[in-house]
Write a protein that binds this DNA or RNA. Structure first.
Lengths: 228, 228
DNA sequence: ACCTGAACACCGTTCAAGT
DNA sequence: ACCTGAACACCGTTCAAGT
């Protein structure tokens, strides 16, 4: 066969792997809303319908990118080599979870897709299996370990529902007056922070610190149940 | 003006309220995926574009139905009349949260829309303000109360991320063999439950019990911090 | 003031066809 | 085996028009 005479860039052939990696990059760059079968194909230099040869449908793409992130998490935490015997279980679990969180922070869209995937990917199962293993080393019964996984919930993977985010948006001091009547306690809380740290009513919640506070609360509670 | 001679059912005029109530009913009946501007209009006996006179766009509909549920929660919890002084704060908060959960269980779609609403509705703010009030009665500083709201996260409203749901789907015993090699700890956990309660490997997680376990873990932890 | 119809710019996906 | 084009059945939304 004669070499291709045309100078046109011969696109690398598609594959499930290339499709998923491009999807992750798209979500990283432009958010989950920008991840469209049509735009995904475009980025890959292919026609929209070509994707369906490598992937059943969009749902499989979402399953796939969840799996990519989960694999990235497992690679990060497996490198830790944590000792987890006896009382050391807590530090080990804590470190593992905070490492997983570091990975998730690079993929801000990941929590919302992990939440919506009903079927658990093998990688997610593997992550929880090892986490449960650390707790077993620490003396947990399977029953307590089971409760622990539920109690941790998404925190096991390194994220938590930020449903309540006071100070986000334009919660400026001038709003406090109107706030104080309807919402006396929240207003008081905000006022105290404004007093302690004037000028920082906006974005005054340290996400990382709050995550660790909640995590430690749960881990300490589990540790006490373990002692019984 | 002469009475309308035609027998055709004269549809009640639209209104923001009617639109939102119909939207809630649609989500309750058929899930969030079925909630479409076009189908919403159809249910109301109107043309799709008529909705836009009463509501800016679909996002406002989602904000609206979140608010409807939040109002329903506030009505339920305000009726409780809880005593929260001193050590009684914990029972009061617990009861309030479990009552909110009862409302949410009637609207299974509500958690996912509450999560995605960045701007907090007045009703959600009000709910958290009163919750913080109960903790203040119990002797919480504003600082601890702030941490507490973050630590509770979505649990404050009565739901928790069910990311890890072993036993859901078709996790039948025959799968356990393959599971045991790759996932020894999860397999062991499942096997123990299967032994204790044979024949119930599927759906063996009691959501309500697990929710209460996690909630109590957090509340007990907060109670200890309050004592210092 | 309240509602409508036609039209636009998107989606995901099927299916028969091309190389 | 791998990719494509045209087409279908949906979306949310704009805009000018009707009563």
């Amino acid at each position: 066969m004669v070499a291709d005479a045309e100078a046109g860039p011969v696109r690398a052939p598609l594959s499930r792997d290339r499709v998923l990696r491009a999807a992750v990059r798209m979500a990283d760059d432009a958010g989950l809303g920008a991840l469209t079968m049509r735009r995904l194909a475009e980025v890959l230099g292919a026609e929209a319908m070509s994707l369906y040869y490598h992937v059943a449908n969009k749902d499989e793409v979402l399953d796939g990118i969840a799996d990519v992130v989960a694999r990235e998490i497992n690679e990060a935490v497996d490198a830790l080599e944590l000792r987890s015997d006896g009382a050391r279980w807590k530090d080990a679990v804590r470190c593992r979870i905070l490492t997983a969180r570091q990975v998730l922070l690079r993929h801000p869209w990941a929590p919302s897709v992990l939440e919506t995937r009903a079927a658990m990917s093998p990688e997610i199962l593997r992550y929880h299996d090892r986490l449960l293993g650390l707790m077993r080393d620490g003396g947990f019964s399977y029953d307590l370990g089971h409760h622990a996984l539920h109690a941790l919930g998404s925190r096991a993977l390194g994220f938590s529902q930020e449903l309540f985010d006071p100070g986000d948006g334009a919660a400026a001091p001038e709003e406090l007056a109107g706030l104080a009547e309807q919402l006396p306690h929240l207003a008081g809380m905000l006022a105290e922070v404004a007093h302690d740290d004037p000028g920082s009513t906006l974005g005054w919640c340290d996400d990382q610190a709050e995550f660790e506070f909640g995590l430690d609360l749960v881990l300490d509670g589990l540790d006490r149940l373990r002692d019984r």
